[in-house]
Amino acid sequence: MTSFLPQHEGWLPYWLLLVSILSVGNTIQAYLTTKNTREVYMRAGQEITALTSRIFGTWTLVSAVVRLYAAYNISNPQVYELALVVFTVAWVHFVTEWVVFGRAAWGRGLAGPILISTGSLFWMFSQWAFYVG
């Protein structure tokens, strides 16, 4: 079983793997129901449709693939940077939907994505030298 796990030192590759797996689960939920998407965008009302939920799920799947690739190729600077970009785009999206556009409201649905993207960004920026050199 351990042969399937990232082989690099440190905890960040495992974190990226975990976040990728969770994102795939979120993608499946977004394709099956609008419930979780509505929890994030609580103030969006009728703007949340099955289509918008699936689009959100598709973005989440793309992010999961990038993060998964980074988990296994964490010493590659381009892959590391791409994972940073994906977390940055997610952070900017969720914060602007909350603060600027007002479609998201602080709660269970929004807390997870903001805390995960914020924490991951700080962790990845602080560990750049360790993993990339």
Rank of each mutant, 00 (worst) to 15 (best):
A83C: 13
A111P: 00
R54P: 01
A50T: 12
G109S: 07
A64W: 02
P13L: 09
L82H: 07
A90K: 10
Q78F: 12
A111V: 10
F94L: 09
W11R: 12
G25H: 14
G112Y: 13
T49P: 07
V79Y: 00
N36E: 15
S20I: 08
V65C: 10
V62K: 00
L32W: 04
W98Q: 00
F122M: 07
F101W: 10
A50E: 15
S117L: 02
S3D: 14
R67N: 11
H8I: 01
T37E: 09
I74L: 04
N76L: 09
A129R: 13
H93I: 10
W59N: 05
I28Q: 08
A90P: 06
G25M: 15
V40R: 03
A70E: 02
R103P: 00
A104V: 07
A64I: 12
S117R: 04
E81Q: 13
P113Q: 10
G107C: 11
L16I: 04
L121M: 15
G107H: 09
F130T: 15
Y14G: 08
F4D: 09
W91R: 03
L18D: 00
A70C: 14
Y72C: 02
T27S: 08
E9Q: 13
Q29A: 11
G45L: 08
A71T: 02
V95E: 05
A70L: 01
T27V: 10
R38I: 02
Y72D: 04
S53L: 04
I116Q: 11
V132F: 04
N36V: 04
V40H: 04
W128V: 03
S120W: 14
M124S: 05
S20M: 05
M1H: 12
S75M: 04
V79Q: 02
L84V: 02
A111Y: 09
V79G: 07
G133C: 03
Y80E: 07
Q29T: 12
I21C: 11
A90E: 14
G45Y: 12
W98E: 03
I55G: 01
R108Y: 13
L68K: 03
G25R: 10
L68N: 08
A129K: 13
L22P: 03
R103V: 07
T49L: 01
T60R: 11
P13Q: 05
Y72E: 03
N76T: 10
L84N: 07
Y131Q: 00
W11H: 12
E81F: 15
I74P: 08
R43V: 00
L17I: 05
V65S: 06
